[in-house]
Design a protein around this nucleic acid. Structure first.
Length: 109
DNA sequence: CGAGTGACCGCAA
DNA sequence: ATTGCGGCCACTC
């Protein structure tokens, strides 16, 4: 069933939930795909208040660096991503970030 | 309902 | 190179 009325927040939830293990997306990309290219901050807020069962650890900034206010801090964040096979250096930035970057398919439900 | 804050991004000086 | 500022939407007070 198609959901005709979707808010920005709901779109973010779906996009984040759709990121496969071992892949990452940026706040800006998610915002753009949800219809608001400059609402990257909002994605951060949604991540803060949103459901914990979603893979927020796969959401990083446009430099491939880890977020500041992530629950537990960057150390925990790095552990979670490395556990999925994502290599991160000592500056908390993803190695070969562009290769891990997840590109959602255009034919989303 | 108004104002302030915020896990960001892009551009100007 | 660094700093500052506007903008987007959600949430709190």
């Amino acid at each position: 069933m198609t959901k005709l009325s979707s808010s920005f927040r709901d779109d973010v939830y779906r996009l984040v939930a759709d990121i496969p293990s071992g892949r990452v997306m940026t706040y800006g990309d998610i915002a753009a795909l949800a219809g608001h290219p400059y609402a990257a901050r909002v994605v951060g807020q949604i991540a803060h208040f949103g459901p914990e069962h979603l893979p927020w650890q796969r959401v990083v900034n446009r430099y491939g660096g880890l977020a500041r206010g992530f629950w537990g801090g960057k150390e925990v964040h790095r552990q979670l991503l490395e556990r999925e096979g994502v290599v991160i250096d000592d500056t908390y930035s993803i190695v070969d970030f562009e290769e891990y970057r997840w590109k959602p398919e255009t034919h989303l439900s």
